[in-house]
Amino acid sequence: MKPFKFSAVNNPAEAITLINKNTDAAFLGGGTNLLDLMKEHVALPNEIIDIGNLSLKEIKATASGISLGALAKNTETANHPLIRKNFPVLSKAILAGASAQIRNMATNGGNLLQRTRCSYFYDIAMPCNKRNPGSGCAALEGFNRMHAIFGWTRDCVAVYPSDMAIALSALNASVKVLSSERERIIPFRDFHILPGAHPEKDNSLQHGELITAIEVPKNDFAEHSAYVKIRDRNSYAFALVSVAAGLTLNGNTIQTASIAMGGVAHKPWRALNAEAYLKDKAATAANFAKAAEAEMALAQPLAHNKFKIEMGKKALINALETAFKGNI
């Protein structure tokens, strides 16, 4: 690791004041991704501000839903009785990710800030626009089996790795962010971004901003939700494709469907076409298949990941069927 100054802070204001003084400083939450990247010399902060002592750890019911403290651990979040009861798809998605040890360390805020697992991003001997803007994208014509099929550009074909965030996307969460000037709420769809002109950026958070909480609105599909994850081994692997789905039902009719996909894009991929197709339709196998078709028709695979189209369809259908059955 590059040498860094270390300080621990005790309140958000202190954290923000410190980070505003140094554009090369980084907040340290659970550290499960940041330390990994620092050891690879991908992340090179010269100052670490340990926010582990901040009291942003509360998980509490609010008038509109539930608020997840940014520094509450993933394990605690997944196991909170209110979340297991009212947002089980969030529990399921969190528990699909990483290992027990990592979930014990990782924070909710930090989970959203995970960087891509693209192996070229991790290997500093390789070109990568995300790590070193302007150096090129080695994955575009390289080994891109794990990479994006939606929303990529020639500058970056990486995918966003979190499972938790896929559920949060389907749950229409928002991210509460504090800076020295203001507190703002970022809707989940705007939090993570597509690579566009700036593949080095993963999200719309600015330097100097601190995530304080994730707000999840109430939903009426808790029982009819599902998280499906397809991966190369049965546990402790990143998704090839994953789907979080929730169905608001009126009998067998779908009033609304909330669907997000992981492992397919630079951000949690909200399956808007599938959702639009399913609106006010009967919950049938045929409609699920058509919705999956509608979503995956827009996919643009790379040389090694054409399989993600078929896999994505199957995952979508399975998630919808599982959600419809309602036994999460």
Binding site: G31, L35, D36, I48, D50, M105
Partner: peptide
């Protein structure tokens, strides 16, 4: 249980 390699 945590990973001591990712803990400063």
């Amino acid at each position: 249980r945590v990973l001591s390699c990712l803990t400063l």
